[in-house]
Amino acid sequence: MTNPLFYAKILLFGEYGIIEDSQGLTLPYSFYKGTLKFSNLENDFEKKSNSSLQKYADYLKNLPVSEKFQLDISTFQKDIEKGLFFDSNIPQGYGVGSSGALVAAIFEKYSVNKLQPETISKDELKDLKKVFGEMESFFHGKSSGIDPLICYMNLPILIENKENVDKVSIPQSAEGKGAIFLIDSGMTGETGPMVQIFFEKMKTEGFRKTLKEEFIRYNNACIDAFLKKEMNPLFRNLKNLSIWAYEHFKPMIPESINNIWKKGLDTNAYYLKLCGSGGGGYILGFTKDYQKAEKMLEGFNKEVIYRF
């Protein structure tokens, strides 16, 4: 049996807001994927991956995990000695869940009680998210567990609040003029420092107030409109969200993107938002007319992820 593939993820809505209990909406993204494999560790990529897995196994060994979600660490360690590595084309530091896919792959292969993602209940999702959060904290210092959960489930997930998540069906992608797309900022971003900036900002009352009263309101309204396929309210709230981020998330917007972010707001041809924690990696774009937006964004690498 070949090892299953674990796809990247895209957080469409909810970056930073989910830390403060906003809703989030996230989708698997099959363009990037990873899987556990064995090899003779002849090249640097495989060697590096194998030695990271060794460190990770030591970390997992000391994690208190409930009986239901136990991992067979000794088999994992034996496999690492046999040349196990994570073969992945998911770019790191791009906000598309490289560590999430790795955590999901390890959980799938080494969990003692095998789960069927299709039959997992809402309560089990909640417990699993906690376990994944502890497992992924090795990579980010603190993790909500959302990324590995999406990679593991391979389904769109609605984050209702800090505690609860649920499986959700999103409108089928159609071949319309509109699109949601990714723009490559040309640089990697590190989650840790960006999250640190966010927490610094949260110390000021004015920022906390505008986050709760404006950002979270626009964010949740976008999710609601997107799931209902109501494009006018979606774009109205997207513009507000994009303006808000341009004003309050300046440090998270890569310099290469600054001008085109503003250009989108000035022309209403497209709106940009962060994809993940920002600082680099991908930026998300939304437009009602992709052809027009594409011309305006010439020179940037773009990938369409959803049509409408």
Rank of each mutant, 00 (worst) to 15 (best):
M231I: 11
V103E: 05
D79Q: 11
N62Y: 08
N240P: 00
I106V: 15
L60N: 01
P193H: 03
S98A: 15
A174M: 09
I146D: 03
G192P: 00
K250A: 11
V65A: 05
N232D: 15
G95C: 12
K262M: 13
N154P: 01
I243S: 03
L272E: 09
Y7H: 13
E160D: 05
S277V: 12
Y32F: 14
F286D: 09
K162T: 11
G14D: 04
M202Q: 08
K142Q: 14
G83W: 11
E298A: 12
S66T: 15
E136G: 09
L238N: 03
N40Q: 07
S30Y: 01
I19V: 15
E20P: 00
Q54K: 13
L284I: 15
S49P: 01
A105T: 10
R236E: 14
R217T: 12
K167V: 10
N219G: 10
A293F: 05
Y271C: 04
F132W: 07
T287L: 06
Q70Y: 04
E294W: 00
N43W: 00
E42K: 09
N62T: 13
L125W: 03
A8D: 05
D166N: 12
C151L: 06
S51Q: 12
A179Q: 08
I73E: 06
I243H: 01
K228V: 05
I183D: 03
S49W: 04
C222M: 15
T191D: 04
F215P: 00
K209V: 07
M135Q: 09
T267V: 09
S173A: 13
I170G: 06
D147I: 12
F226I: 08
S173V: 07
G95H: 11
I216H: 02
I80K: 06
S143T: 07
E214A: 04
F181V: 12
P91S: 11
K126E: 11
M231L: 11
N50F: 01
Y16R: 08
I146R: 03
L53P: 01
P28V: 04
E163L: 12
F226L: 15
D266P: 00
I180N: 02
Y7M: 01
K295I: 14
E190V: 14
Y110R: 04
Q291W: 00
D44K: 02
I120V: 15
F286I: 11
K126C: 10
I120W: 02
L158V: 04
K250S: 07
S121N: 08
N50M: 02
E81L: 14
A245E: 15
I10P: 02
K33N: 12
